[in-house]
Design a protein around this nucleic acid. Sequence first.
DNA 1: ATGTTGATGGCAGTCACTGACATCGGCCTA
DNA 2: TAGGCCGATGTCAGTGACTGCCATCAACAT
Lengths: 187, 187
Amino acid sequence: MGRWQPNARGRLTRAAYELYGERGYEQTTVAEIAKRAGLTERTFFRHFADKREVLFAGSEDLQEALVGAVTGAHESVAPVDAVTTALEAAGAVLTDREFSRQRQRIIDANTELRERELIKLARLAAAVAGALRHRGVPDLTASLAAEVGMAVFKVAWQRWLDGTGAEDLRGCVREAVGELKGTTTRT
Amino acid sequence: MGRWQPNARGRLTRAAYELYGERGYEQTTVAEIAKRAGLTERTFFRHFADKREVLFAGSEDLQEALVGAVTGAHESVAPVDAVTTALEAAGAVLTDREFSRQRQRIIDANTELRERELIKLARLAAAVAGALRHRGVPDLTASLAAEVGMAVFKVAWQRWLDGTGAEDLRGCVREAVGELKGTTTRT
DNA sequence: ATGTTGATGGCAGTCACTGACATCGGCCTA
DNA sequence: TAGGCCGATGTCAGTGACTGCCATCAACAT
């Protein structure tokens, strides 16, 4: 048996979710999270850059999935379509709506957390734009397609969690894309 | 004459811009800003909610301008066009490109500041979406038009500062809108 | 005169985050 | 198998953002 209990990072994550959910983000100190996980504050900061990051650890996976889907799209596909299709594909990964709702409830209750969420999305957009440029898409087109894609995703995500839209995220993305094409074409 | 030098807030703002520009945001303490302004740290926090907010104080004006332009648009105008037209109008206010560049250089050099910038934009989007809904535009359409509008603005803003696009912000917005309509229509 | 108000100072405290150093099981190598 | 290195954790002492509370004191009203 090792010198320490296994899966320190996982225990920290779990403890953080519990406490943020119970008392709210602001009312929770890092020391409390660490204590519940049977660790020290210092160790928390070795696993997570800051108090917020524990809620956003999975975002690299989403980024990889998105970039991969964009990169792998057929050349004939228009940039916006490549992005929105990638979003649908990524949507297939995010299936646990109840978990996503709880997490979002925590985030929405705190401005700092919303800020972090937004910069993660912005990084996603930057990565997607990079993937498009790598395919030879011109700068302006790439940036705009990526940003518009994130706009679609934001709206779709919120409606998925609200229950306003389709049952699965992929469906919500499709609805939003439909609205986008309608709304930008309409005179 | 009053008990204190006039325009404390302005002095704090000026001192903050100077120091953020000279040493960078992180390397500047609030105490230093206050000292340069001839005030105390405590007073800084009476004028600004936090160390970042001093760079974003003007954003309410932009929000009012945008919301006003959206609200005042003719009913026959499609939501997206109402938003993009409002953006062009707002662009007429932001004319000092050199100042905007300096400010943006400070912001781009620091993640926390970028986070703050993003949430200000998100609030802009929420306000615009609200204005659209108030005009009877359905939820999904309003949210999407607002978010897409911000996407356009982001791209236009960056190109304006880069010097990649037109000379005035209004022109950059127009270019981005053109690209948007082309790119979302294209099969 | 006297009371009130509003912008500021002073001070103590909390908490996020960091750097430097100590600890000690497990693993590798001779 | 002895010795030594490594990596995850602990400990501790900071720094700096931000807050609450109370004091100050010119200006202004009554």
